[in-house]
Design a protein around this nucleic acid. Structure first.
Lengths: 219, 219
DNA sequence: GTCAAGTTTAACCGTCCGGTACATTTGCGT
DNA sequence: ACGCAAATGTACCGGACGGTTAAACTTGAC
């Protein structure tokens, strides 16, 4: 009842063999959960080690210190989000439909990845100072913006969207609402009730977000 | 250069007189800043005491423990926000204009109160568990919603707004964007550049938020 | 078989920090 | 003046926690 160890997928036998990559992956996965749950200072290195079949020592061995581990987690989660944005291809659809799909995708993606949201919240608490030290994140994230840019260009050309739209602002708006939905659920529902967060409420909210974005770009 | 003590406004002389209310207020003000800066586990009780003319001892004397102090801070900041929402009166204005003013007020209010935003972020990290223990916050916050409800009713009656609008969702949307603007500035600007956060960018963003809300309620 | 590099363990250390014990001072009522 | 309770100062404790030490084990190259 008290222990539920192991996270690693079945890879190498690894009973007592050396398999550093798997150990690192296990640590990273457990750390992601633990940092998302408790924040940087709130997370306990010992607790992370306890989650999996390894020792605290190994965490420092592979990641240097607690902040190094935290940075590795950031790198991983942001990397996969950027990848997801690159993979999303909406070029075949008419502009308004493409934009709708993009909003829905973003909304759903945030709803599905609460750990990501929490890690971003935590990083913002720290003024983004740790992600600044992650080399792979130093490049500006262009994929998400150019995606919207293409949609807008097409939309304007077809006469269904206003001209002079700012793809960056549109992305900001979509992110804002998708993010807030997960990030502030606790305090919002405490203050205003839980109606927006059951299944029906979330569906309505999602559609409302879509509508307001579409309405604000329509010609 | 190293010390900048005292926060208390000029009240009682309080050179070495007892003035518990002022001490409590000082502690609360310093704690608000410190918790907003570093989070619950990240904040140091000693640091809070160092900010003002008091000792760590007094903090535990008046607030019991660290979490008690944190709860007191939550109570104070949420209380003043709710008060601000109650004080805002837009009844004299035409519906669309009233809604515009409400959005602008909310956006600006969040921009001005970064400490509040950060404390709410922190409380959400903790799943809102501490605010649940604050009695004065146990009542649902109705003022903000009924305000919007009145505007919507008037708007529908005048034929300038759609019927079937959800005041709760509108409030959610306004909050989402106003909140995100302050909350995620660090990570957003790191990922997508700083254009939205200089003076011109903020003005444009504010207007964009207004426009998208108005567009989504328009008849 | 030997050796070095990589990997893992268990025990440990120093410090930070929330919280407390206890003495002391202050203001007020009488 | 005196007593008493509220308020404050000082010194300290105990445990948690990030990080380290030193030695052992595993593996593969030669």
């Amino acid at each position: 009842m008290t222990k539920e160890p192991k996270i690693s997928a079945p890879k190498k036998p690894r009973s007592w063999k050396q398999d550093p990559e798997a150990v690192k992956a296990d640590i990273l996965a457990a750390a992601k959960v633990e940092f998302a749950k408790h924040g940087l200072s709130g997370a306990r290195v010992q607790d992370i080690a306890d989650q999996i079949q390894t020792s605290k020592r190994m965490i420092f061995y592979y990641f240097g210190d607690k902040e190094g581990l935290y940075r590795a987690v950031l790198e991983e989660v942001y990397g996969s989000v950027r990848q997801a944005e690159r993979d999303l291809n909406l070029d075949g659809f008419p502009p308004m439909e493409a934009l709708r799909k993009l909003v829905e995708f973003t909304f759903d993606h945030h709803a599905r990845n609460r750990d990501f949201i929490r890690l971003v919240m935590i990083e913002n608490i720290h003024h983004g100072k740790h992600m600044m030290d992650v080399e792979s994140l130093m490049t500006t994230n262009t994929a998400a913006i150019t995606q919207i840019e293409r949609i807008c260009d097409a939309g304007v050309k077809e006469g269904v969207m206003r001209s002079g739209l700012s793809p960056l602002m549109i992305h900001w708006q979509i992110s804002a609402m998708s993010f807030f939905n997960g990030a502030n659920q606790s305090t919002f529902s405490f203050n205003f009730g839980n109606d927006l967060f059951d299944e029906a409420g979330q569906a309505a909210l999602r559609e409302q977000v879509v509508q307001s974005i579409l309405a604000s770009v329509a010609a």
